[in-house]
Design a protein around this nucleic acid. Structure first.
Lengths: 209, 209, 209, 209
DNA sequence: TCGTAATCGAGACGGTACGTCGTGTCTTGCC
DNA sequence: GGCAAGACACGACGTACCGTCTCGATTACGA
């Protein structure tokens, strides 16, 4: 009356994916990332579990843990891989339009791609452990900030910006705005929101007489 | 075979904290919130579990779940209770100084109180499903925005601000900045950072000749 | 963000059943027994819980526990009350037919009445505690055995039975048979089963030449 | 951000009993059954919980639930394992003595071994829902009846029994008798009780002139 | 007639077990 | 060595019932 009879480990269900010897199987690796992306797409932020990734990718948990340290590592690669292709640098000759464009692109990416959806989870995961936040901040964020910095500096060279602005602070502000909207569930394709933010940033809030 | 004729094999365990009838036991409620805060203080955002709260508070899990729907609800009350006492409205007659002060107060709260420390977990926790984000956005955030809105509107009445600014957008920007710094582990008591942000906001980034 | 606002104990939902002062409210008592019976009827042996009885009867748990020591006590009264009315003594002038009739009546009672259904649970409950078994055996069973003993003795007086039979043992055998069928889920209205048992008992199994 | 670049915040707890790969760990399995038996021995039928078994065996609850569907399944294996060793088939050339011997062995087993003690709980547990009763009746009982059927048939071949007896019914009667005695707390080593039952069965109760 | 004493509902409470799920580690045996 | 399969300890989850308790309203009876 036990639940099942003795398990036979190499039973009926043969897997298609086999070992490729002492080299990493790239097919497996790809399958894992694809499965991870699909789960994020379909089931949302919760329900994203390593076990589910293993089930869907046909990989074993050990293989996943061999190559990624934990859930966050996997999420990270989901996001990193895709964002590079999606985010491009506009060149309109007008910094305001360029930034609005970039914000809308970013939000669209967050909204519409599985990898983008991973991002909020990535932020959440990172909060559980101080060292993870640190590593993430120093290794991941700089990559993302490059694009915006480039656009801002180009605008500065074109003479569009005040001489004395602090680029890093401005970028903190702009990323912060997008993150805040993301984390509070407000990243519809809202042209007004993006434009409004840029306008306030651009003009300053102080009254000049 | 009513009571007096039937053996009663029960009644071994005696509890310390007794029932207060059909009214909620405020002492228990307080013990729970205190335990929750203490755990956050000592063990950090991760390792915060309902079971641990139950163990330390001496309350039972059922009691916690009777009054809070889930972990997030409890975290929320931890935060809300404390933040009301901590965050005050400055009145310096100068909106720049007022905002810098508020930002520094907020960061200090986030850094130095157990409840404040809970906040990043609260954000993370809220990301797990869409309905939580929604509830959080509509019930929790408005409360937090009131203070800043008050300060901005007062400044507007004093004539310090441009006539046409969009208060909500400005608040999104300012909260966004603080959240971003928090979530990327950069909320030291950095006067420069707070001041820099305000300066950029205040002046605008566009060059005016 | 707590689960609900402060409970108001004497809120909207007024109960119909009121206190009857310092006398026991028989209506409440009846409602409890009826609810208990109904639950057994509908939901079966599992799902019979004091809380459910309280819910359905409109009584409070304290009232139930005031009058019955525990779940078993309540089950017991469910059974005892009903069985008296249901089980009658046949008088056919033929002990075989009388016993078959009694068995079928008993099985029918067990099958078709809520109280009867309680019986198997009663047996099960009684097993959890040694003193309960004891009390049950000495206080409850004798009552049930009276009927059968009466029938057997009447048959003996009619000269139908062997002189030296041990009534108590025979009764043990007969009750045992019914219990076994009950506890193994075989108390359909199976005339053959009842008859077969009686035949074996009556004839003996040893070959007589 | 593969494994080697990502901090791994885990790995604090070391366990004593290690995995044996994808094969079932027989040591664990044995430890679970032993713990279960010991608990029955010491704490009786009530107080037998899966959690306690987990605690004492050093196994995790998940492992228990991996191999046994529920409490009943585990109890069952406790009982089945032990009963095979304990219950033997006598061969005295005399069916009366053989049956008395078997009954006394069975009662002794029920009385004196932890697994035997589990049996009444097993019966009780099985009553909680209809499907359990069914499974139990079809999967468990037949195994137990084999021994007795063998003895009866051998006696029949020796010519000791009436030609037309219904073996299944006789077994129902005999098992019923033992169960009834068990469930009503009367399985002392009472030679008289066992003998009396057999005598009544053997001779029949009807008077033959 | 009024106080005392008991009943009753509602439901909070500590406790404990349930059964499920996910984590990250490990082992076996095939490739 | 890579890899699938999957067993394992750990521990949190959220639910359910248990039996005890307190509260405040209600009601009968005796002083």
């Amino acid at each position: 009356m036990t639940k099942r009879t003795m398990a036979s480990p190499s039973g009926k269900g043969r897997s298609l994916k086999r070992s490729t010897g002492c080299r990493r199987n790239v097919e497996t690796s790809r399958a894992i990332l694809e499965a991870a992306a699909a789960i994020l797409q379909e089931k949302g932020y919760a329900n994203f579990t390593i076990e589910e990734v293993a089930r869907r990718s046909g990989a074993s948990k050990s293989t996943i843990y061999r190559w990624w340290a934990n859930k966050m590592g996997l999420l990270f690669d989901c996001y990193a891989g895709a964002s590079e292709k999606m985010l491009v640098i506009p060149d309109f000759g007008d910094v305001e339009r360029e930034i609005v464009f970039m914000i809308r692109s970013l939000w669209k990416f967050w909204r519409e791609t599985p990898s983008g959806r991973a991002f909020r989870l990535l932020i959440a995961e990172a909060q559980t452990d101080a060292s993870t936040v640190e590593e993430w901040r120093t290794r991941f964020l700089p990559e993302r900030r490059k694009l915006l910095r480039f656009v801002l500096q180009r605008a500065a060279e074109r003479g569009e910006l005040r001489r004395d602005i602090d680029f890093e602070t401005v970028m903190d502000i702009m990323f912060g705005y997008s993150w805040y909207r993301l984390l509070t569930g407000q990243i519809d394709d809202d042209v007004k929101a993006a434009t409004a933010m840029v306008r306030e940033m651009v003009r300053g809030i102080i009254r000049k007489e």
